[in-house]
């Protein structure tokens, strides 16, 4: 029954890696949509939109991802909505990503010099057009390093899905450890896989940041 860590196990880890990438991708895309909505609410002139968005961000930034996962994962079931765990996990990570991206993008929207918005106002552009054509495109550029940086956090954060029993890279590693009792080899390989996924993104993000800093000097 006991086996030695071999090629099959490596392939099993790659399958787990696929799920890690998939959760991160779904959460990132879903979070981009949710995050844009939250960021727009956050900079809205209407208090009724601004405040709920602010509290939502405060709650998600003030509680551990692990707890958010537990609550959304089991909470969905308690509400009587029957979805499979993969959907529940995706929803949990999407909520998390929406709140964080919302806050990152809020900062970037506000970092666009107010003169830009004022000039657009003087040209009698509507609020929507001001946002759509003047502010958001510039904010997007400013936000890229931080957004990619958050993607790295998200990828690493998917490892916590293992704690609710979802089989992604980390959990696959735990399964193989349980069958081989070779944790150092298994977790070493798992660590290299995360690094291979995250490091290029981190590198890209830092390089962009430096370029922008240099350009703005």
């Amino acid at each position: 029954m006991v086996r030695i860590f071999g090629l099959d196990d490596f392939i099993l880890l790659l399958v787990g890696l696929q799920w890690t990438v998939l959760i991160a991708a779904v959460a990132f895309v879903g979070g981009a949509v949710g995050g844009l909505a939250i960021a727009l609410c956050r900079v809205s002139p209407k208090r009724l939109l601004r405040l709920p968005a602010k509290y939502l961000i405060e709650i998600f930034q003030g509680t551990p991802l692990l707890m958010q996962l537990f609550l959304v994962y089991f909470g969905i079931g308690i509400l009587g909505i029957n979805v499979n765990p993969w959907v529940a996990i995706s929803v949990a990570y999407t909520c998390h990503a929406s709140a964080f991206l919302g806050e990152i993008w809020r900062g970037c929207i506000q970092a666009v010099p107010t003169g830009q918005s004022e000039a657009a106002f003087a040209l009698s552009l509507s609020y929507r057009h001001r946002m759509r054509y003047i502010v958001l495109p510039q904010a997007l550029r400013i936000s890229l390093p931080a957004t990619i940086g958050f993607l790295v956090q998200l990828i690493k954060g998917t490892s916590l899905a293992s704690i609710v029993g979802f089989t992604e890279l980390m959990r696959s590693g735990q399964y193989i450890t349980n069958a081989t009792y070779q944790p150092m080899i298994v977790y070493g390989v798992v660590g290299l896989m995360y690094f291979a996924l995250c490091w290029p993104l981190s590198f890209w993000s830092t390089r962009m940041e430096h370029r922008m800093a240099a350009a703005s000097r």
Partner: peptide, 15 residues
């Protein structure tokens, strides 16, 4: 910065 904290913990405690 490029590996999960959970993994780092395992390393410090078990490794």
């Amino acid at each position: 910065r490029n590996t999960p904290f959970l993994l780092q913990l395992y390393f410090f405690f078990f490794g």
